[in-house]
Lab assay of single mutants.
Amino acid sequence: TFTSYQLEELEKVFQKTHYPDVYAREQLAMRTDLTEARVQVWFQNRRA
């Protein structure tokens, strides 16, 4: 599960791009204290 802060950050990036590159995902992962893999999976699920 994600915190409301994490979801907010993820959604913010999703609004800009549905396909963030690895750099964007790593920045987001650091900001949200998630792994890059978790961020990647979240985007895959969000796009589905």
Rank of each mutant, 00 (worst) to 15 (best):
T1A: 14
T1I: 12
T1Y: 13
T1R: 13
T1M: 10
T1W: 14
T1K: 12
T1N: 13
T1Q: 13
T1D: 09
T1P: 14
F2H: 03
F2T: 03
F2P: 03
F2Y: 12
F2E: 02
F2W: 08
F2R: 01
F2K: 02
F2N: 02
F2L: 13
T3H: 06
T3G: 03
T3K: 06
T3L: 07
T3C: 06
T3E: 07
T3P: 02
T3Y: 05
T3F: 04
T3N: 09
S4R: 13
S4T: 13
S4C: 09
S4A: 15
S4D: 14
S4G: 08
S4M: 12
S4P: 15
Y5Q: 09
Y5T: 07
Y5E: 09
Y5N: 10
Y5D: 10
Y5P: 04
Y5K: 11
Y5G: 05
Y5I: 08
Y5F: 14
Y5V: 07
Q6C: 03
Q6S: 02
Q6A: 05
Q6V: 05
Q6P: 01
Q6N: 02
Q6I: 04
Q6T: 02
Q6R: 01
Q6K: 01
L7R: 06
L7E: 10
L7F: 04
L7P: 02
L7V: 12
L7Q: 08
L7T: 08
E8L: 11
E8M: 12
E8Q: 12
E8K: 08
E8R: 11
E8A: 13
E8Y: 11
E8S: 11
E8P: 09
E9K: 02
E9H: 06
E9A: 06
E9P: 00
E9G: 02
E9R: 04
L10H: 01
L10M: 10
L10Y: 01
L10D: 00
L10Q: 01
L10T: 01
L10R: 00
L10C: 05
L10G: 00
L10A: 01
E11A: 02
E11F: 04
E11N: 06
E11L: 03
E11I: 09
E11T: 03
E11Y: 04
E11Q: 04
E11V: 08
K12E: 08
K12Y: 05
K12M: 09
K12I: 07
K12G: 06
K12Q: 07
K12R: 12
K12H: 11
K12W: 07
V13P: 02
V13Y: 08
V13C: 05
V13G: 04
V13W: 07
V13T: 09
V13M: 14
V13A: 13
V13N: 02
F14V: 01
F14S: 00
F14I: 08
F14M: 01
F14N: 05
F14T: 00
F14L: 02
F14C: 01
F14G: 00
Q15N: 10
Q15G: 07
Q15I: 09
Q15K: 10
Q15M: 10
Q15T: 07
Q15F: 07
Q15H: 07
Q15D: 09
K16P: 04
K16H: 11
K16N: 08
K16V: 14
K16Q: 12
K16E: 14
T17L: 06
T17A: 06
T17E: 07
T17P: 00
T17R: 03
T17M: 10
T17I: 05
T17C: 11
T17D: 08
H18E: 08
H18W: 14
H18R: 15
H18Q: 10
H18L: 06
H18C: 09
H18N: 11
H18V: 06
H18I: 07
H18P: 15
Y19A: 04
Y19V: 04
Y19Q: 10
Y19I: 04
Y19G: 02
Y19M: 05
Y19T: 06
Y19F: 13
Y19D: 05
Y19W: 14
Y19C: 06
P20G: 02
P20D: 02
P20Y: 05
P20K: 05
P20H: 03
P20W: 03
P20S: 01
P20F: 04
P20L: 04
P20V: 03
D21W: 02
D21M: 02
D21R: 03
D21S: 12
D21L: 03
D21T: 08
D21C: 06
D21N: 11
D21K: 04
D21F: 13
D21E: 10
V22H: 13
V22C: 09
V22N: 09
V22M: 10
V22L: 15
V22Y: 15
Y23F: 10
Y23P: 03
Y23M: 13
Y23H: 12
Y23D: 08
Y23Q: 10
A24F: 07
A24M: 15
A24V: 15
A24R: 06
A24E: 15
A24W: 08
A24H: 08
A24Q: 15
A24Y: 07
A24K: 05
A24P: 09
A24G: 05
R25L: 15
R25W: 04
R25M: 15
R25C: 08
R25D: 00
R25S: 05
R25P: 01
R25K: 04
R25Y: 08
E26C: 07
E26W: 12
E26N: 11
E26S: 10
E26D: 07
E26F: 13
E26T: 13
E26L: 13
E26I: 14
E26P: 02
E26Q: 14
E26M: 13
Q27N: 05
Q27R: 05
Q27C: 07
Q27G: 06
Q27K: 10
Q27D: 11
Q27H: 09
Q27L: 11
Q27F: 11
Q27M: 09
L28Q: 01
L28P: 00
L28H: 02
L28Y: 00
L28W: 00
L28G: 00
L28K: 00
A29E: 03
A29I: 08
A29T: 06
A29M: 12
A29D: 12
A29H: 02
A29W: 05
M30S: 12
M30C: 07
M30V: 11
M30G: 06
M30N: 13
M30K: 14
M30Y: 13
M30F: 10
M30L: 12
M30H: 11
M30W: 08
M30E: 11
R31M: 12
R31E: 06
R31N: 07
R31F: 06
R31Y: 05
R31T: 10
R31C: 06
R31I: 14
R31K: 13
R31S: 07
T32W: 15
T32Q: 02
T32K: 01
T32R: 00
T32Y: 05
T32C: 09
T32G: 02
T32P: 00
T32N: 04
T32L: 14
T32V: 14
D33L: 10
D33W: 07
D33R: 11
D33P: 05
D33S: 13
D33E: 13
D33Y: 09
D33G: 15
L34Q: 03
L34T: 05
L34P: 12
L34N: 02
L34H: 01
L34Y: 01
L34S: 06
L34M: 09
L34E: 01
L34V: 04
T35K: 04
T35E: 07
T35N: 08
T35V: 04
T35R: 03
T35S: 12
T35P: 07
T35I: 03
T35L: 05
T35Y: 03
T35Q: 05
T35A: 04
E36W: 07
E36T: 09
E36V: 14
E36I: 09
E36K: 05
E36L: 11
E36Y: 07
E36P: 11
E36A: 11
E36Q: 07
E36G: 05
A37H: 12
A37T: 07
A37N: 09
A37F: 12
A37G: 10
A37W: 13
A37L: 09
A37D: 13
A37Y: 14
A37R: 13
A37M: 13
R38K: 13
R38P: 00
R38Q: 15
R38H: 09
R38F: 11
R38G: 08
R38Y: 08
R38E: 15
R38M: 15
V39I: 15
V39D: 00
V39Y: 01
V39A: 00
V39K: 00
V39M: 06
V39P: 00
V39F: 01
V39T: 02
V39G: 00
V39W: 02
V39Q: 01
Q40L: 12
Q40F: 13
Q40G: 05
Q40V: 10
Q40K: 13
Q40W: 07
Q40Y: 12
Q40T: 13
Q40C: 10
Q40D: 15
V41T: 12
V41N: 13
V41E: 15
V41L: 15
V41K: 14
V41C: 08
V41H: 13
V41R: 09
V41Q: 15
V41I: 14
W42N: 01
W42G: 00
W42Q: 01
W42P: 01
W42R: 00
W42F: 04
W42K: 01
W42D: 00
W42S: 06
W42C: 00
W42Y: 03
F43G: 00
F43D: 00
F43I: 02
F43C: 00
F43A: 00
F43H: 00
Q44N: 08
Q44P: 03
Q44H: 12
Q44I: 13
Q44T: 09
Q44Y: 10
Q44G: 04
N45E: 14
N45T: 08
N45Y: 11
N45I: 10
N45V: 12
N45L: 15
N45R: 15
N45W: 06
R46F: 02
R46E: 04
R46C: 00
R46A: 07
R46V: 03
R46G: 02
R47W: 04
R47C: 05
R47Q: 07
R47T: 04
R47N: 08
R47G: 03
R47F: 03
R47V: 08
R47E: 03
R47I: 10
R47H: 05
R47P: 03
R47D: 03
A48Y: 10
A48Q: 10
A48V: 11
A48G: 13
A48E: 15
A48R: 12
A48D: 12
A48T: 10
A48H: 12
A48S: 10
A48I: 12
